[in-house]
Amino acid sequence: MTPDEVILLSHGAGGKLTARLIDSVFLPRYGNEILRRLGDGAVLPPLAGDPVLTTDAYVVSPRFFPGGDIGSLAVHGTVNDLLMCGAEPRWLSLAFVLEEGFPCEELARICDSIGRAAAGAGVLVVTGDTKVVERGRGDGIYIAAAGVGERVRGLELDPRRARPGDAILLSGPVGQHGVAVLGARRGLAFTTPVISDSRALLREARALFAFGGALRTMHDPTRGGLATCLNEIARAAGARIAIDEDAVPRDPPVEQACELLGMDPLYMANEGKLVAVAAPEAAPAMCAALRAAGAAEAACIGAVVEGSPLVAAASPAGGERILDVLTGDPLPRIC
């Protein structure tokens, strides 16, 4: 594959060029003995626990951003979704939709990062597909990912189990992915040192799995950020959630960027954080377990309380505000 080669329509036709793409780009970077069989699907070994399936589409723009790219994001995001379901991630499938003219060198870099991320998360990419759309009909590359995991015994993760008195734990500072991608889009006109927090939450999730039933539910606050995630939990639990904004771990450059853009870090996307609802008696130990697992700034940020499903936040000024459900992508504003 020469450096200046680009994706042609025929790369998606299933013929010789598709095979060359698989042999020269995909297999060397994340091949394994199941994927190498190149069947129409992957025959998987039996699981002791219940199987869990998740699926996600990745269209992030720009494709490369500080702290990651669309490839590592696809692996981490899918792995994290499985972890949030209380499952040990096992296998992934990745389907690419490539645009005619997409540089093969970029595809190779993305597949390198897929390989590293999959190895890091201890998962195998076992099946996949590649389609090519005409130039102008796509945005370079989209990735549709699916993941299968094995449910950990003794866990019953369901936001409906959250009840008044339960503690809300957050594994680290919010808004890093959202600001990193926004900064990458703006180029020199607006630069931040913020890098995406995109990573697999294996250690954090496993640290909490050990608490069994005391762990009510777990979620990764991706699109819509922490506030949207908390609203989903409140609605499912039919209860109010009260948090203290001062207790939410902060990353100063994220806050500074959000101030300048008139945006709120609590609504900015995260790709490497988790929110856990914990039984009150287990919360301190869970928070300590998160920290021991490497989430150095993990904190209890609030609790589920009696009341109608809303999320209330005590503001740093000492007042209180409602964290409403997001009505659309956060937009930078001047007034």
């Binding site: 709120d264 936040a313 005590a314 503001s315 000024a317 000492g318 007042g319 209180e320 505000r321 007034c335």
Partner: peptide, 24 residues
């Protein structure tokens, strides 16, 4: 005012209302 939750901190007798200074 809204983001700081300031209205709730003011005495009940003091009311803040919003004016036309929002271009949108």
């Amino acid at each position: 005012i809204a983001r700081g939750g300031l209205k709730r901190l003011l005495p009940a007798a003091i009311k803040l209302v919003s004016g036309p200074g929002c271009p949108v």
